[in-house]
Design a protein around this nucleic acid. Structure first.
Lengths: 209, 209
DNA sequence: TACAAAGTGTATTTTTGTGTATGCAAAAGT
DNA sequence: ACTTTTGCATACACAAAAATACACTTTGTA
């Protein structure tokens, strides 16, 4: 039995939840959701959450807390019934490399297998900053990252620079390796690397906020 | 009977405790935990600690102090029911070599046997400095070290240099042996070694702060 | 002693999710 | 044209959980 259709109201709620998830790193409480959806009774928000659970968009974890499980990112970016893979959202990583750690997973997001082929090799990151806004990656967007250590010329890579996870374009030429920002903000300068540096993965897809 | 589920709040507390442990080398006091979790009464923090003890995440040592015992680092980094090995956290070692001594053990951390195969040959160290930040090792991170005297070209080794434990990449070529820092900070220079020097072990895994 | 910092017991308040009943407007049936 | 149904939103209430205020004891230190 496929999940029934998602109404506009539910879409709106979903958007708010996702936005809250990105902003604060956790699910909104019933009363928080109430405010953000301009409800005047917590009941409305509660009902909405129940409805989203019944449509397999949210799930109740064993401890009772709620988690976002189903937000399919298809080719169209919309929610559909395609075959999907669950991809963990690792959140904003300020230092160190992103790890698959239960406590870091803010949500399980279903991504179309057309984009993320094998499970387990992909994760989602929330970006910070505007250094890639010419390539359609803006502050707060999610990027779907394929975990791999090697990248090729022109790939948008997730790299570990200056204690931060950075998203940049990789440029390899004869002499050196450069990470190019793609921004309208001139403050961002290319980073020139010696041979070895830590590539975390390459950006496969962008999910706008 | 497996331990019951860990709630979000407990996760958050665990994260704070772990972070404090890494930063200061000891468990936070009730009142410190209170501040770090934005509680307004020490009681709240106290209750939280009791809850974590009852879930076998913390334990009371014989002298009454608290110790973190259960933080399983699996392949996913998450907390799970996998088969694990207890690995001692030896803390920041400022001089001399790390020793297995009860007084040095800050915590017993359970690590998946998939990573640490035999017990007793592994320990955890807290790192200092940024000399390896291009390899995903940042100031304050924990590294899982496998105790062995021999290393191969390209291994990230824990070596004893200048009375300090250093984490560097080992580079062996025809003429000499070099310890390469992997940092965006140009202040770190390669260290050229004569043939014999003390390798303590190799870094198997990194647990980011 | 005096004092500050620590952990914890008790009672109280706040927060949280959800149950029930109600109102209300648009859609559907007669 | 009229009921009836349906979908949403609201108000209120309640119980369980979480957090608080306050007080007390213990401990190490000057």
């Amino acid at each position: 039995m496929p999940d029934s259709q998602i109404s506009n109201k539910e879409m709106e709620a979903l958007r708010v939840i996702r936005s809250h998830l990105m902003k604060y790193g956790k699910m909104p409480s019933v009363r928080e959701l109430m405010k953000e959806l301009n409800y005047r009774s917590p009941r409305s928000a509660s009902v909405m959450i129940q409805k989203l659970i019944s449509k397999n968009i949210l799930e109740k974890k064993t401890d009772g807390s709620i988690r976002l499980i189903r937000y399919e990112v298809g080719e169209t970016g919309g929610i559909s019934q395609e075959q999907t893979v669950k991809v963990p959202l690792l959140g904003t990583v300020t230092c160190g490399l992103p790890v698959y750690a239960e406590e870091n997973i803010e949500a399980e997001i279903a991504v179309s297998t057309k984009i993320a082929r094998q499970p387990g090799k992909y994760y989602l990151l929330r970006t910070q900053g505007d250094s890639m806004n010419l390539r359609g990656i803006n502050d707060g967007d999610l990027v779907l990252v394929k975990h791999q250590e090697h990248a090729e010329n022109g790939d948008i890579v997730v790299a570990l620079i200056d204690n931060e996870v950075t998203v940049k374009e990789l440029k390899i030429n004869e002499e050196n390796v450069v990470l190019l920002p793609q921004s309208a903000n001139k403050a961002h300068t290319p980073i020139i690397l010696s041979r070895d540096f830590a590539i975390q993965g390459i950006v496969v897809s962008v999910i706008p906020l």
